[in-house]
């Protein structure tokens, strides 16, 4: 069983680009430059600070698989994308950082939205005018907050929804609080 499988292995590794018929002793020499993940000779080689060699695409995929637990696949030391060292051999023509290259990844990647650009409404434009009271040290503050100059706000909740009722209720409470506060100011 074992020997027949061995022949099968040798027969089907021709696409790797290096001779699989080499002798075992030569292979032993090679194996110190093997990637610890794919076990092939490392391409776009990078070294972790703990000294372990990987292909960049392999290590990248490992780090992507476990974003919360970024550890060295060999010794489980903490590693990160920023703290690996690219290796440039003399023969390599391209001197670009292998880390710049992002290997082909499985589908379903998504990028996080940039914060702050996803407010649904922008002031007057789309039916989302807000009334609000404000009392500042400067009396004009009252007007600026009332007329809402240039201040992006979230859209009001749709009519009839629970949230709409709540908002109405809250705005009434604050209106009465403001009136009470004003009268207290005048009386004092």
């Amino acid at each position: 069983m074992a020997s027949s499988a061995n022949e099968d292995v040798k027969g089907s590794t021709g696409d790797e680009g290096h001779n699989s018929e080499t002798k075992d002793e030569e292979k032993k020499d090679d194996s110190i430059f093997e990637c610890n993940i794919c076990l092939d000779t490392a391409r776009d080689a990078v070294v972790s600070l703990c000294g372990h060699l990987f292909c960049w695409p392999c290590l990248h995929q490992w780090l992507e698989t476990r974003p919360n637990r970024q550890v060295c696949p060999v010794c489980k030391a903490a590693i990160s994308k920023e703290k690996v060292v690219p290796l440039y051999g003399r023969g390599s023509t391209k001197q670009e950082d292998p880390r710049e290259k992002v290997p082909p990844r499985p589908a379903g990647q998504r990028t996080e939205p940039e914060p702050g650009t996803s407010f649904p409404g922008f002031g007057f434009g789309d039916n989302s005018f807000h009334m609000s009271f404000g009392i500042g040290a400067f009396p004009f503050g009252f007007f600026t907050s009332t007329f809402n100059f240039g201040d992006p706000r979230p859209a009001a909740a749709a009519h009839g929804t629970h949230q709409h009722m709540e908002e109405q209720f809250l705005s009434k409470i604050f209106l009465w609080l403001a009136i009470l506060f004003l009268t207290w100011l005048l009386m004092a």
Binding site: A5, V9, T13, D40
Partner: peptide, 12 residues
């Protein structure tokens, strides 16, 4: 598949 092939040799 490539890795299992290599590992298989290693174990054998």
């Amino acid at each position: 598949a490539q890795r299992i092939k290599r590992e298989f040799k290693e174990v054998v």
